[in-house]
Amino acid sequence: MILSLVKADFLKIKRKGMWLLCLIGPFGVVALQMVNYGVRKDYLFEQMDDRWLYYILNINTFTPLAIVLGIVILTSFMASIEDETNAWKQLVALPVSKRAVYLSKFTVVSCIVFLSSVLLFLFMFGYGLTLGMGEDIPYLRLMEYSFLPFFAALPVLGLQLWVATVSKNQAIPVTLGVVGVILAYSASLLPDWVIWKWPSLSNEWGHSYINALLGIGFGVFVYLLGMIDFKRRDVK
């Protein structure tokens, strides 16, 4: 049941520009560094002995921003596809559980954001190679800064999807999302417990995997809350 729902959901996002968004996000993040390194490559190379690490950290200044923004747009899109002609009623009147309907939406958004992470890895790796920063390529670090922000952002995904699916007016999740993007951008000023800080992968222990694990754990929790609330509500 869940697989057919996911397939149907992938069909529904056809021609909605979501795949383009999936591409633009990681491309944009790397493109910013193309400009940065294009203009002042020599200066940037002097900043740190480990040029690859410095490059990755530069990229990571914008990754959280892009991920949070992407999640806000994708979740709101997902909900608005059903909201537009109130197709929720038709969808829920099919022989599917409401839990599965919610899980399917969550899965589709997660898949797109994860694919973005894969693309980010490829773009980051590809452009890094052209910079000539040495043969010693830090594959592990590249993966860390490509994929861990995704896991760390799962609570934001859960929250945005929840608000987007239960709001009649998409202005509400988008407003929340804008606040989230601002918070994600000012991550360094925030205490560790704020979920919008997590995608930046920084915390007082200095281990990025903590953010990813917290993200998965708390993400599942927020997801469950959203699902229970979605199931409880009447479909208008």
Partner: peptide
């Protein structure tokens, strides 16, 4: 049960066939 409740619900950016396909996959 097959149902049509109040105003018809559909996905405007999809074709008639794709609209039915979205339900068919689930059914």
């Amino acid at each position: 049960i097959g149902s049509l409740v109040e105003n018809p619900s559909y996905y405007p950016h999809l074709t008639a066939k794709e609209n039915l396909e979205a339900s068919r996959k689930i059914l």
